[in-house]
């Protein structure tokens, strides 16, 4: 899926995360900041990258500000950000779970 505009999802509140996604020409860059980065950084990044891969997002700049969110919240926020950043969004729920 092609990211055509900058988009946001989520909040900075505890147990949530703010995801910012923007078009990028060369590849997928993911920047993660988390209060629990030492313990869970690699895991959160994997959840986010899996989500992006399943949505077929290969070119994007993704910046995540994590506030200790559960995996399912990370997935929901990444998917929402993508859905807001693409031209046409038809959810394939089986690919989102």
């Amino acid at each position: 899926m092609k990211i055509v505009r900058e988009a946001l999802a989520g909040t900075l509140e505890s147990s949530d995360l703010l995801v910012r996604i923007a078009p990028l020409e060369d590849g997928l860059e993911l920047v993660l900041k988390s209060e629990v980065i030492h313990q869970f950084g690699p895991h959160i990044e994997k959840v986010a990258r899996d989500c992006l891969a399943r949505l077929g997002v290969t070119q994007a700049l993704v910046v995540i500000e994590d506030k200790g969110a559960l995996d399912c919240v990370v997935a929901a926020r990444v998917q929402t950000a993508v859905s807001r950043a693409v031209d046409e969004w038809t959810p394939d729920w089986s690919a989102l779970s």
Binding site: G10, C72, V73, A76, Q79, S83, R84
Partner: peptide
């Protein structure tokens, strides 16, 4: 609305 739908979708699967 869209964000909440996505969150609830995932919460239901917990």
């Amino acid at each position: 609305k869209d964000a909440a739908r996505m969150l609830v979708f995932h919460a239901l699967r917990l």
